[in-house]
């Protein structure tokens, strides 16, 4: 571990999970601007529950729950991410250079999570705000019970995309294996495409030529006995 001015460098090889988090939280409280985590080795829970502003640099793969349950943080992951990176993020920005496993940004409430590769099942599940960007494909039940926020998917999606979403918007460029219950494709205004393009370019990502826009059709919002055909698959 070495601290140079506004930067703290932690070697994950030599630090326990408890101590590593303690050092990050402490650094954020002291106003240190950046923490570099060397050799993260896909360990779980690296950088959890941080509520003071700080920039985290992970020099390798991270395990479950990196940068989760946090506020005002930014992070770059120079590798792949395990389950639920950015889970319940309140605000800030996380960029994963590689792929992410399942439940990416589950229940995120604000901020931006960018995965430049693909992401697994339940990506953006229960999203409650913020922006989630996936450069590649996404798995089963992506956007399940999404409540707010937006998701931009540059590749294809597995089955049940946007199933039972209450609100929010999903933009997808590729194929959809199956649209979820209560989700529907609507026209994409040109201005929204330009906004998506601009957002992707700001992360050095090339925007695909077109996107489909998916929103909640509202048919599942209230328990209507006359709509059995709609409800029977979700009851």
């Amino acid at each position: 571990m070495e601290s140079v001015k506004d930067q703290l460098v932690i070697n994950s090889n030599e630090t326990s999970q408890e101590k590593l988090n303690e050092l990050i939280v402490d650094a954020a409280k002291k106003g240190i601007k950046e923490v570099v985590i060397k050799h993260p080795q896909a360990r779980h829970n690296l950088g959890v529950g941080i509520t003071d502003p700080i920039h985290l640099v992970y020099e390798g793969d991270v395990g479950y729950y990196a940068c989760s349950m946090s506020d005002h943080i930014s992070a770059e992951v120079h590798g792949n991410a395990g389950w639920a990176i950015g889970e319940n993020l309140m605000s800030g920005e996380i960029v994963v250079e590689g792929n992410a496993a399942s439940s990416t940004a589950a229940s995120m409430r604000g901020g931006t999570v960018v995965v430049k590769g693909s992401s697994g099942a339940r990506t953006g599940i229960g999203l409650k705000g913020g922006t989630l960007i996936i450069g590649g494909n996404v798995g089963y039940m992506t956007g399940f019970m999404m409540q707010k926020g937006k998701m931009i998917i540059c590749g294809n999606a597995g089955k049940a995309l946007g199933d039972s979403m209450y609100a929010g918007t999903i933009y997808i460029a590729g194929d959809i294996a199956e649209l979820g219950n209560g989700a529907e494709i609507v026209d994409l205004p040109k201005a929204e495409y330009e906004e998506i393009k601009h957002t992707l370019e700001s992360y050095g990502m090339k925007a695909p030529a077109s996107f489909k826009k998916i929103v909640c059709n509202g048919l599942l919002h209230n328990f209507n006995k006359k709509e059995f055909g709609v409800w029977k698959t979700v009851l």
Partner: peptide, 25 residues
């Protein structure tokens, strides 16, 4: 209508990691 499965863990092994996360937080 709330979901019945947690969004970020599936079984007891994952739950162990989740508990660690809450302990840290």
């Amino acid at each position: 209508r709330s979901p019945c499965r947690h969004p970020d863990w599936m079984g007891p092994d994952d739950l162990g990691v989740k508990i660690d996360q809450i302990r840290i937080a």
